[in-house]
Design a protein around this nucleic acid. Structure first.
Length: 115
DNA sequence: GTATTGACCGTAG
DNA sequence: TCTACGGCCAATA
């Protein structure tokens, strides 16, 4: 009852990973959407922070980009598997570290999972 | 316990 | 249209 409006940090991280893993192949989302879905839209930075720890976990973090569709976190990915390569492997076109038709490929958990 | 940083987002000039 | 600044939360030093 201490946190009625938002989840505990442990659940927060876990939920972030869950949502990221729920992202359909060939789709992408942004930090704000996930944060909003978790109820912490204002803490969208925390989503990125959680994902920073997620690179050591088995989740398609490469499907998560910023609101500009820019692969801001690609520098945090291992050089052997760049973010762009992973995205292109799923049919997502990436140009200049930016997702093409990001607006069309955008996947909002607060909407898709809310149906 | 305080200060700084961070895979961000939104608004204002 | 582009640039600059603030906010908000958590982790790390």
């Amino acid at each position: 009852m201490e946190n009625p409006s938002k989840f505990n940090r442990e659940n927060f991280y876990k939920d972030v990973y869950e949502v990221v893993k729920l992202i359909p192949r060939g789709r992408v989302t942004n930090y704000g959407a996930i944060a909003k879905y978790l109820g912490t839209a204002k803490s969208s930075r925390m989503v990125g922070y959680a994902l920073n720890q997620s690179f050591h976990i088995d989740i398609p973090a490469h499907r998560v980009v910023n609101r500009n569709g820019l692969l801001t976190g690609k520098h945090h990915f291992p050089e052997e598997k760049p973010m762009q390569t992973s995205l292109e492997a799923e049919g997502i076109r990436v140009e200049n570290d930016q997702v093409v038709d990001f607006k069309k490929l955008f996947w909002d958990p607060s909407v898709e999972l809310s149906l």
